[in-house]
């Protein structure tokens, strides 16, 4: 693969030599309210550069809202988001150049063929034609979509649609990848391929943030994790720190709560 992100050099580091490295993504007090419902209630998070960061949380925890605010898709009511030190909401164009985004629950321009859609994403970013063409070909091959390059995205299956959206997010070789539920309805083979791609991307200095419900996957794949519930961060750090000896799933349940050990439903065993 050719979309290796540039390394640490040349990043806009405003701080002096003694300060810690600039995080790939730094959220400070992000908050969002929809009507009466507070979706995100002051989330602060530092995603170190070069990490594979998992964001886990129950349904309605505010994961998608947080990631949308971090990537410039949804304006926060309060708080700031910095991508490699660039404020997403003050300098959106610069920040968006550094990021590749796979949003969850948005449509695609699905009357284009898969190849056209990824090409479109590259051209919108102002890339030149030859580079777009060669990267599109490689991406489609890597994601097992080469045979369906000419099929309209509207006729794709759910998993293929996810993969073509991922390809659109990778085309410009971003330094930070923000993937909201990237493995949903993706078959195991393709998921393994995607994981390989992401692993290589991280090992060459890129940063990946994924949100997921699947604890096992996050525990195996990620080196850092944040547990989000009710619009707040309950725990964040390396996977080892957060799970503290238990499995991530047990720790998650312990942190989030809400498991009910009711004695009811006896009738369910009476048939």
């Amino acid at each position: 693969m050719t979309f290796q992100p540039p390394g640490q050099q040349g990043q806009p580091a405003p701080a002096g030599p003694s300060s810690p490295p600039v995080p790939a993504l730094s959220l400070l007090g992000l908050a969002k309210r929809f009507g009466d419902k507070i979706a995100v209630d002051g989330i602060s998070l530092d995603v170190p550069a070069g990490s594979f960061y998992g964001v886990v949380g129950p349904n309605g925890a505010g994961k998608t809202t947080t990631l949308s605010m971090a990537t410039g898709l949804l304006r926060p009511d309060f708080g700031t988001a910095l991508v490699h030190g660039v404020d997403v909401w003050q300098h959106p164009l610069e920040a968006k150049k550094l990021m590749g985004i796979l949003p969850d629950g948005v449509r695609l321009f699905d009357r284009l063929s898969g190849e056209q859609l990824v090409t479109y994403a590259g051209l919108l970013r102002g890339m030149d034609r030859e580079m777009v063409a060669s990267r599109v070909a490689e991406l489609l091959a890597a994601l097992d979509l080469a045979n369906d390059a000419g099929t309209l995205v509207v006729d794709y299956s759910a998993g293929m649609t996810k993969k073509i959206a991922l390809a659109s997010a990778l085309i410009h070789a971003p330094r930070l990848l923000v993937l909201d539920e990237p493995f949903e309805s993706v078959d195991p083979i393709s998921a393994a391929n995607i994981r390989d791609i992401l692993d290589r991307y991280v090992s060459s200095g890129g940063t990946v943030i994924v949100s997921s419900h699947v604890m096992d996957l996050v525990q195996r794949m990620c080196d850092h994790v944040a547990v989000v519930a009710g619009g707040r961060v309950l725990a964040a750090g390396t996977v080892e720190e957060v799970r503290a000896g238990a499995t991530l799933e047990d720790r998650f349940v312990q942190l989030v709560g809400g498991r009910n050990h009711t004695e009811g439903l006896e009738w369910l065993r009476t048939f």
Binding site: G72, L73, K96, K97, M99, V106, R107, A121, L124
Partner: peptide
């Protein structure tokens, strides 16, 4: 008509 597919334009930061 774009509906939420417009997110691609927002995400890519097209002028």
């Amino acid at each position: 008509y774009d509906s939420t597919a417009f997110a691609l334009h927002v995400a890519t930061g097209v002028r």
